[in-house]
Design a protein around this nucleic acid. Structure first.
Length: 476
RNA sequence: UCCUUCUUAGCUCAGUCGGUUAGAGCACAUGACUGUUAAUCAUGGGGUCCCUGGUUCGAGCCCAGGAGAGGGAGCCA
């Protein structure tokens, strides 16, 4: 029986067997206490070994990190801190853990150190809590879409197009790294490669997602995506998971409504279903906050922040309105921004942070960006200057969602591909959807790790994915 | 990629003006203790001071180069 279930049982004379990893062992002359955890819950179960119940040799093997099965009777606990505990009659040691060598000690470890032992960090309270929340959010995503008539579309991970323009790509090839076949003009001959052309790992499933939406009406993708950008920040990974719904007959406002309802319901799901884990992470954050200066401490606890976001309306405004607010802002007038503010600029982090964290103090949806700073597939407004784009900005995270209504007019789309220098041949199939039964449609991409970051209150994206891939780092 | 900070025991860190034998807390080991909650108390072991080179009578400390990590920025989700 899992420890999560066991802790909910009322004590009985029935014999139970619990399997898990030892967190701590406390020994006194006549009794030993073993705290065990199997990852099913943040809570440990206490196994009590009375004098003589288990041989001394066996008990000696029970150390922090070892894996054991204990058999005994579930009894009411005499001590504080738990209602039931196991009165042990037998212990089976599955795997020992030399206490001199086992890196996880019954004490606080820095997140930096735990990153170096990512193979063991899921055994800590913090990471098991994060991983359970990550799972719950993934489940909630599928449930939400299923309940709302979306179909899960599996878009390819290896792509032959590099038209998304979302960033540098990882090349996929089976050609030898040394002396690859060359063309007559000395370049690598990809006709000889596995697919007979240049291929890469996907940076987004959107273009294929649109093909699905043009048949199934409402689809979503949820899979890994890859960016070979040399980004070294707390918000970027080279391999991350993205959720990309795409809906026929949706215009920009429908898209915004969906994005807002979707993220709110995911957060509510976590609040309802991961209460223990969120409470643990909240306590952890509070301790961390105490170390900070007064002015840097956040005004809300983690659960307050999550509830605030899930219960309040996101602020919606256009890029042009946002620029006006920034031009009127104190930091702009006092010259505090490092980057100048003017219509046409790409908003910098400091600008987004001001809008979200200082001015509105809630999530913000920015729309109608200038076309020149956005992707080619976004629908051009009638003003000819802006596109029907939307970015959802979250406090502390920045851009968590980027999306748009797509250009559904063939001529206009073709025009834009030419302007940004995309070869027609490379995305003929994408362009054809605008020739055969085109329809207004829209969609967005949600960075899954950024959502997990927000819900767990963690500050580094490397700590919300089991095995992070970042520049110069692909261990484990 | 740029800016910036850091690298000393298993972990988190201190280390004075460059000075002879490098410290603390936790962890670990041993012992004590009749119910603990990251138990407590006592004792003990544990060091390539990130690497390479230089300055100096003498370098953990100063200089140069390199590696790794953190934070910020850019790119974005």
């Amino acid at each position: 029986m899992q420890i999560k279930e066991l802790l909910l049982q009322s004590p009985s004379q029935q014999t139970v067997t619990v399997k898990g990893w030892v967190r701590t062992k406390r020994v006194s002359s006549s009794v030993a206490f073993i705290a065990m955890n199997d990852g099913s819950t943040i809570h440990n179960i206490q196994a009590v070994v009375s004098d003589g119940a288990v041989s001394e040799e066996t008990l000696k093997l029970v150390t922090t990190g070892s894996c054991i099965a204990v058999t005994g009777i579930l009894i009411p606990s005499q001590g504080q801190g738990q209602s039931v505990e196991v009165q042990v009659s037998a212990i089976q040691v599955y795997g020992t853990a030399d206490p001199e060598k086992y890196p996880l000690q019954p004490k606080k470890h820095s997140l930096e150190f735990l990153r170096e032992i990512a193979h063991l960090r899921p055994r800590t309270n913090t990471f098991s809590a994060i991983l359970r929340i990550r799972h719950a959010l993934a489940f909630a995503i599928h449930q939400y879409f299923n309940d709302h008539g979306f179909f899960y579309l599996h878009t390819p991970i290896i792509t032959g197009s590099d038209a998304e323009g979302a960033g540098e790509m990882f090349r996929v090839t089976t050609l030898p790294a040394i002396n690859p076949p060359l063309t007559e003009d000395g370049k690598v001959d990809y006709k000889e490669d596995f697919f007979g052309k240049e291929t890469n790992l996907t940076v987004s499933g959107q273009l294929e997602g649109e093909l699905g939406a043009m048949a199934l009406s409402k689809i979503y993708t949820f899979g890994p995506t890859f960016r070979a950008e040399n980004s070294n920040t707390t918000r970027h990974l080279a391999e991350f998971w993205m959720v990309e719904p795409e809906m026929a007959f949706f215009e920009l406002t429908d898209n915004m409504n969906l994005a807002e309802d979707f993220t709110k319901s995911l957060i509510s799901y976590a609040l309802e279903n991961c209460a223990d884990d969120i409470a643990f992470l909240e306590k952890r954050l509070l301790e961390e906050e105490k170390m900070k200066k007064k002015e840097e401490q956040s005004e809300m606890t983690l659960s307050e922040k999550l509830r605030f976001v899930s219960e309040n309306t996101f602020e919606r405004l256009t890029y042009t309105e946002a620029i006006d607010i920034l031009l009127q802002s104190k930091p702009h007038k006092q010259g505090k921004f490092n980057y100048p503010v003017a219509w046409g600029i790409d908003l910098q982090s400091e600008h987004e942070r001001y809008l979200v964290e200082k001015h509105f103090k809630k999530p913000v949806i920015l729309t109608h960006y200038p076309k020149d700073i956005k992707a080619f597939y976004m629908k051009l407004e009638d003003d000819g200057k802006t596109v029907r784009a939307m970015d959802v900005l979250f406090p502390g995270i920045g851009e968590i969602i980027g999306g748009s209504q797509r250009e559904d007019n063939y001529e206009k789309l073709l025009q834009r591909t030419k302007e940004v220098g995309i070869e027609e041949d490379s995305i003929w199939w994408y362009l054809q959807t605008r020739q055969f039964g085109s329809a207004p449609h829209a969609g967005f991409g949600l960075g899954f790790e950024r959502l997990v970051l927000f819900v767990t209150g963690m500050s580094n994206i490397r700590d919300v994915i089991p095995f992070p891939r970042t520049p110069k780092s692909a261990e484990f």
